[in-house]
């Protein structure tokens, strides 16, 4: 299981890109942090989520 924004999800083995595309997250409006480190945008397709990873998807909305 991978913990994403506090919830356990069965996505170990998927890439970050595969996971994000299965959600409502807009890839242009997010930053993804895995185990305390940023996942560079260019590496979403090759970063494979492992069992027990802790992921935070920070999503931006407009206004400021």
């Amino acid at each position: 299981m991978v913990k994403v924004n506090g919830k356990e999800i069965d996505i170990a083995g998927k890439t970050v890109e595969e996971y994000i595309s299965s959600t409502d997250f807009d890839p242009k409006r997010i930053a993804v942090e895995r185990n305390g480190e940023i996942v560079p945008k260019a590496q979403y397709g090759e970063t494979i989520l492992a069992e027990n990873d802790v992921v935070e998807v920070v999503s931006f909305v407009g206004g400021g």
Binding site: K28, R29, A31, K41, V58, F60, V61, G62
Partner: peptide, 10 residues
């Protein structure tokens, strides 16, 4: 702008 925020942060 949300996309500008994400661009800067990343």
């Amino acid at each position: 702008d949300a996309e500008s925020k994400a661009m800067l942060v990343n």
